[in-house]
Amino acid sequence: MSWAWVEVKPNENDLMHPGHLACQGCGATIAARLALKVFGKNAVFVIPASCWSVIDGAWPQHALQIPVFHTAFETAAIAATGIRAALDMKGRHDVHVVAWAGDGGTFDIGLQALSGAAERNENIIYITYDNEAYMNTGIQRSSSTPLGAWTTTTPDERPEDRPKKNMMEILAAHRVPYAATASIAYPDDFIRKLKKATQIKGFRFIHVFSPCPPGWKMASNLSVRVARMAVETKVFPLYEIEDGEVYTITHWPRGLPVEEYFKLQGRFKPVLKDPERLAYVQRYIETQWERLVRLHEASHGYLPEEARATIRSAI
């Protein structure tokens, strides 16, 4: 066995340099790299306890070429608020303050501070990179863990029996100016939403789907494919909500059966072996999707042709 050392030089235009500490195939890392392409140098990332507390690097090194402010697990939204307040007092209105939090820090422990900042319409961008469990501590369930999934605290004998918490609806209920879902498998859609967010004032929320190869029990080269299948099976629809009222589906999925998404990952093995359970999950996905399509239709007054094919029952 022989080793080859390869010197990796950072791309001058890339604000995320090599040498970060993410696992191979980490969706959260792809998400950050894409986001920085939009934000540029005039942004600060506020990172609560999460995989990204580690990914950026151990002191005295860090991979991002923008300031990073690490903070406690439940404080991403409020720390970002504090930084925004200080920068506003100093007249730095030209910079973006970005909370960059995992699903645990957003859906669970950080929800209170997030709600406060959203309700006050703080002028920050909050991005949650969602890998659907507490991955940094070794794959424990969060309220983002989807129906049927294995984690170390929802073992095969008792897989997750509650649906994923709907964060977008929670944000919509706060009537924030902008909330969107995004996926690392659809970079054009993600980047368009990031750009839109930078042009809006007030509280902006982006929920980006970020596969985790070790946590989802899959090969590290499958991250993008799995993320794409989540969208095409309607498990994770791509849409945005403006002012908590106007719903717009930004990508019309092919409407593949959920097995196509599940079978790429080891975490859904128990549900794949249980036809009754699988049918239940599929029904749940259809109900949620139809609900979302109706909200789109109510917002715009019509549905595009491609919408029809995604609906199993006639609407």
């Binding site: 507390s53 151990a58 002191w59 300031p67 402010f69």
Partner: peptide
């Protein structure tokens, strides 16, 4: 651009 409060 530094990382403030990074893990040590």
């Amino acid at each position: 651009p530094r990382a403030i409060g990074a893990f040590a």
